[in-house]
Design a protein around this nucleic acid. Structure first.
Length: 536
RNA sequence: GCCGCGGUAGUAUAGCUCGGCCAAGUAUGCGGGCCUUUCGAGCCCGUGACCCGGGUUCAAAUCCCGGCCGCGGCACCA
């Protein structure tokens, strides 16, 4: 061995090749691409049926970051032939007030992502269950009702001492709990605390709050109104539900890492076993807003001018509007994988995946921005030349074709973009895509004139002519293209083929040499369309 | 302040558990070529990374220690 390492790499390789040729054959073979698969779940054989869950707070719409735990949880449940649960965590009617339409919107977004669920729960409808468990926990000495002022408790905690209520009997706490339930206490006057290790180095862990009082006459819950005033905190409700619902594997954002430790105290006190936990890193979407609070603020500031599916947001509805296929989102999330590292998803990557999928089935049309008029002389008055029948896609025949008639006048007027006119003036000639080759005759501020020199594509190739898109001046429509650029939303105005009017709203079309776009609004009467720019 | 997690090309990821198949794979991006009536797609070629410093070892992306950087959490939000 020592001898081997004293050789150069080349010498080592050739020596090894001589002695063990089979190793090298193996290595050459496994270069093939493998599809991305999920790593196995920890301790999956411990459970007879694998159960995962996605537990959003319906205080807002979900975004790409939420799609990570949702999609992975769902995929795992499927792979292990287990069950997947959807659970709405809406136990804070005060600071995270549920948004009534969010329950529905989240389900819609999940369905669009291809996610279906076997069970559905709403926590605010399970209050009696939490009360029940709380009573059990208190009787077992795992929790107590604390009447301390918030600041007083903090002092006890920082000194690593229990507050006076900590040692009161379970009976006393149960009695106080009943008084909480009956509405005897106001906000901040009483809480249920879970007994934890007082010596924990992390003070936030110590005797955390499991229930607090929320005055629902002031902050009614959208589903239960003012019926309840004692509300479980996230850690209590989620922890208890995961056990009660038989969840075996929890996939959630790493911001919950500490919560696992908190909930463990409840589990220990009740003799439960904690599910397997996988903490996931956060997702960012390059150049887009994902943060709930930022989206809300932007929405508020726009005063109704923009909506939740604004293309600058990373919400699921925005990606859907942007024409991104759900399977692309799925692929990206599978690619990012099951781990605690944060990832910044690049828009280029999403666009590339999406493009490859839609390209073969997307009609291609022409539209011109920065249009300038170009007069073409000497175009033969041959219907074969002047009446064009153009396929929507060069290889996908089934997409059909459209007719472009450039008219029968002596001169043909077309519009090309300002940038392409520069090409014409520089090269002296170019090819109008699918139409004819032209050479420049006259160019001034007010007029651009060219001459027909043939329809032959091979001629254009031989001459190295650039091929540019165009629209006929006599029959074109106005269009507006909404294009997100960073955090700005630009509106580009241009002219396009009239056959754009024939598509239904929501149709994705490729504007040749511009990019993929989605038709959002079509007005046949005013001969105008509005498109949303998707990606190159 | 305290606690936790993580660091492989511009971006994302494979490899790290069990050190040698890694002169580090793949996708995207970028550069070039071919093909193609788009600046799209396809095909081919190229570009570019193991956070830093020590240690262990014949051998370290992989194990150990220290540092640096990033991210997350923190007390009646979820």
């Amino acid at each position: 061995m020592n001898f081997v390492n004293s050789l150069s790499i080349e010498e080592q390789l050739s020596l090894a090749r001589e002695k063990y040729p089979e190793i090298f054959e193996e290595a050459g073979k496994k270069r093939l691409q493998e599809p991305k698969t999920l790593p196995p779940l920890p301790n999956s054989d411990k459970y007879s049926i694998i159960k995962t869950r996605f537990a959003p707070n319906p205080d807002f719409y979900i975004h790409l970051g939420n799609a990570r735990p949702a999609l992975l949880s769902y995929e795992y449940a499927r792979e292990y032939r287990g069950k997947f649960i959807l659970r709405f965590e809406d136990t804070d009617p005060r600071t995270k007030r549920p948004m009534p339409e969010a329950y529905r919107a989240i389900k819609e977004d999940l369905k669009w992502l291809g996610i279906s669920w076997d069970e559905e729960y709403v926590q605010s409808l399970r209050m009696e269950i939490y009360y029940q468990v709380a009573k059990e926990l208190i009787s077992k000495g795992g929790a107590y009702v604390d009447l301390c002022k918030r600041d007083d408790f903090r002092r006890y905690k920082l000194e690593r001492r229990g507050c006076p209520h900590r040692d009161q009997s379970p009976e006393k706490s149960l009695e106080l709990f009943d008084r909480m339930l009956s509405g005897h206490f106001g906000e901040g006057e009483a809480v249920v605390r879970v007994k934890t290790d007082l010596t924990s180095p992390d003070p936030s862990l110590i005797d955390w709050v499991a229930f607090r009082i929320i005055d629902t006459s002031k902050y009614p819950h959208p589903l239960t109104g003012s019926k309840y005033v004692v509300w479980p905190t996230y850690n209590f409700a989620a922890g208890v539900d995961d056990k009660l619902m038989g969840v075996t594997h929890i996939l959630r954002g790493k911001e919950h890492a500490l919560n696992t430790l908190k909930q463990l105290y409840v589990y220990k006190a009740l003799g439960w076993e904690y599910p397997e936990v996988i903490n996931l890193g956060r997702l960012k979407l390059e150049g887009m807003i994902l943060s709930k609070s930022k989206i809300k603020e932007t929405l508020r500031r726009s005063r109704g001018a923009i909506s939740i599916d604004d293309p600058r947001f990373g919400t699921i509805s925005s990606l859907r509007r942007r024409g991104i296929l759900p399977e692309v989102i799925k692929e990206i999330i599978m690619e990012v994988g099951v781990k605690g590292t944060d990832a910044t998803i690049s828009w280029e990557n999403i666009a590339s995946l999406n493009r490859k999928k839609i390209d073969p089935v997307t009609p291609r049309l022409m539209a011109v921005f920065n249009p300038v008029k170009l007069v073409v002389r000497d175009v033969p008055k041959d219907p074969n030349i002047r009446q064009l029948r153009l396929p929507y896609h060069p290889t996908t025949q089934s997409l059909g074709f459209r007719l472009i008639d450039v008219g029968s006048e002596d001169v043909v007027e077309v519009l090309i973009s300002r940038e392409d006119l520069d090409i014409l003036s520089k090269d002296g000639a170019l090819r109008l895509l699918e139409f004819c080759n032209i050479s420049l005759e006259k160019l001034s501020d007010s007029i651009a004139e060219a001459r027909f020199i043939g329809t032959d594509l091979d001629q254009a190739r031989r001459k190295g002519l650039k091929i540019v898109h165009w629209v006929p001046a006599r029959q074109c429509i106005r269009l507006e293209l909404l294009k997100p650029e960073g955090l700005k939303l630009k509106i580009l105005r241009g002219l396009g083929e009239k056959s754009l009017l024939e598509f239904p709203p929501g149709k994705v079309v490729q504007l040749i040499r511009v990019g993929f776009t989605k038709l959002e609004k079509i007005s046949k009467e005013s001969r105008k369309v509005r498109l949303l720019y998707m990606h190159d």
